[in-house]
């Protein structure tokens, strides 16, 4: 199998593995911060796909995949800031970051 895997397929497989690990973390962990870490891993896997397709695609000089990845990094940074701010505020309110205990929307 090692000799048959082309470079692009190798990067895509690593990205798929990272995405699945992030998804497993987001779905199984109880700490809200760890769920955010899983989401960050999924976003990064998508970035790896974009860069890999940019590198092996037909027109790398057009910079399309690279630009998509750079904007994606910026959006992910904004998402992390707001998400962690929400976690801190929920911790102040409910004194916990355990998602299994956050089962009501009423304040």
């Amino acid at each position: 199998m090692t000799s048959q895997v082309t470079p692009l397929a190798g990067y895509l497989l690593v990205a798929a593995l990272l995405f699945s690990i992030g998804l497993a973390g987001a779905l199984t962990r109880r700490n809200a911060i760890l769920v955010l870490i899983g989401i960050e891993l999924m976003l990064n896997a998508a970035n790896l796909n974009l860069i890999a397709f940019w590198r092996y695609g037909p027109h790398p000089e057009a910079l399309t995949g690279m630009m998509f990845a750079i904007f994606s990094i910026a959006v992910a940074a904004a998402e992390a800031a707001v998400g962690l701010g929400l976690v801190i505020q929920i911790y102040r309110h409910a004194k916990t970051t355990d998602l299994d205990q956050m089962n009501r929307m009423k304040g």
């Binding site: 699945s20 690990i21 987001a26 779905l27 199984t28 962990r29 109880r30």
Partner: peptide
């Protein structure tokens, strides 16, 4: 550290 429904999450992933 894992939620009660960890098996379903693992299966989905």
């Amino acid at each position: 550290v894992f939620s009660r429904t960890w098996l379903a999450g693992l299966a989905i992933a």
